[in-house]
C-alpha cells in the first residue's frame, strides 16, 4: 500500500503532469503551426475587442441566450466547471502537499466550501449523465467515451470527499483518489476534455468573425 502511494505521488504524478502539459502544449503547437501553414488568413480576422465582448458574455452565467434558455444546465455547468477548477488548485490538502514538495503556497479553501463544491460537481455529473441518456438528440450524438468522461470526474471527486472525511476504508479511497485524479489529468489532451483549451481557440475565431467581419453578436 505504501509503495503504491509512493508510486502514485511520485512517478505517476509527474507522468500525469507531463501527459497533461506536454499533450496540451503539443496540441496547441500543432494547431497554431497548421493554421499558419494552411489557413493563415484566419489570423487577419482576429479582433481583440470582439473576442473580449464575446468571451465576457459566454464566461458569465446567463450571459448568452442559450444559457438563459437552459437555466438548469447553466447552473449545473457553471457550478461544475468552477468546482472542477477550484477544488484541485485551492484545496488545503493539495496546497499543503505542494508546499511540502516545492515550498510554495497560495490561498486555500476553508470550512464547508470544498465539501459543497464536491457535492455540486458530483450532482452535476449525475445530471449530465441523466441529460445525455434521456434526451434523444443528445443520445443520438453520444459515443461510449461521452458517458465515460463524467465517470472519470466522479471518481476523484467522490473518493476525495470520502478520504477527507475519513470514512471507513479511506486509505483505499485515498489511493483511488490520487490515481483517478492522475488518470483524469492525463486523459484531457486525448479526449473531448481538451475543450478546456481548444474551446478558447474556436471561440476566439468565431467571435472575431462575428464581431469584426459580420458586425453581429454571437451570444
Amino acid at each position: 500500500m505504501h509503495n503504491l502511494y509512493i508510486l502514485a505521488t511520485g512517478p505517476l504524478l509527474y507522468l500525469s503532469f507531463a501527459l497533461f502539459f506536454g499533450g496540451m502544449f503539443i496540441q496547441i503547437l500543432f494547431l497554431v503551426i497548421e493554421t499558419y501553414r494552411k489557413e493563415r488568413f484566419m489570423f487577419s480576422f482576429l479582433s481583440l475587442s470582439s473576442v473580449l465582448m464575446s468571451v465576457a458574455h459566454w464566461l458569465f452565467p446567463f450571459g448568452s441566450t442559450v444559457m438563459r434558455r437552459e437555466k438548469t444546465l447553466t447552473l449545473m455547468g457553471f457550478g461544475f466547471h468552477i468546482g472542477l477548477f477550484i477544488l484541485p488548485v485551492f484545496l488545503f490538502d493539495h496546497v499543503l502537499l505542494i508546499y511540502e514538495s516545492w515550498g510554495v503556497y497560495w490561498l486555500t479553501l476553508s470550512g464547508m466550501v470544498p465539501d459543497v463544491l464536491s457535492v455540486f460537481v458530483l450532482s452535476a455529473c449525475v445530471y449530465f449523465l441523466f441529460r445525455r441518456s434521456t434526451k434523444p438528440e443528445i443520445r443520438y450524438i453520444s459515443t461510449p467515451i461521452d458517458y465515460l468522461i463524467p465517470l472519470l470526474v466522479i471518481f476523484p471527486v467522490a473518493t476525495g470527499l470520502w478520504a477527507s472525511h475519513r470514512l471507513p476504508g479511506y486509505p483505499i479511497a485515498h489511493i483511488t483518489h490520487i490515481l483517478s485524479g492522475e488518470l483524469l489529468l492525463s486523459a484531457i489532451p486525448f479526449t473531448r476534455l481538451s475543450h478546456m483549451v481548444l474551446g478558447f481557440f474556436t471561440r476566439v475565431y468565431t467571435s472575431s468573425e462575428f464581431g469584426r467581419t459580420r458586425a453581429a453578436h454571437d451570444w
Partner: peptide, 17 residues
Amino acid sequence: TGSRLKAYMKTCVHCGL
C-alpha cells in the same frame, strides 16, 4: 481544410445545445 475543422470536431462535447 486544416486545424479549423479539426478543432471544431475535437472541441464539440456533444452537448446537443
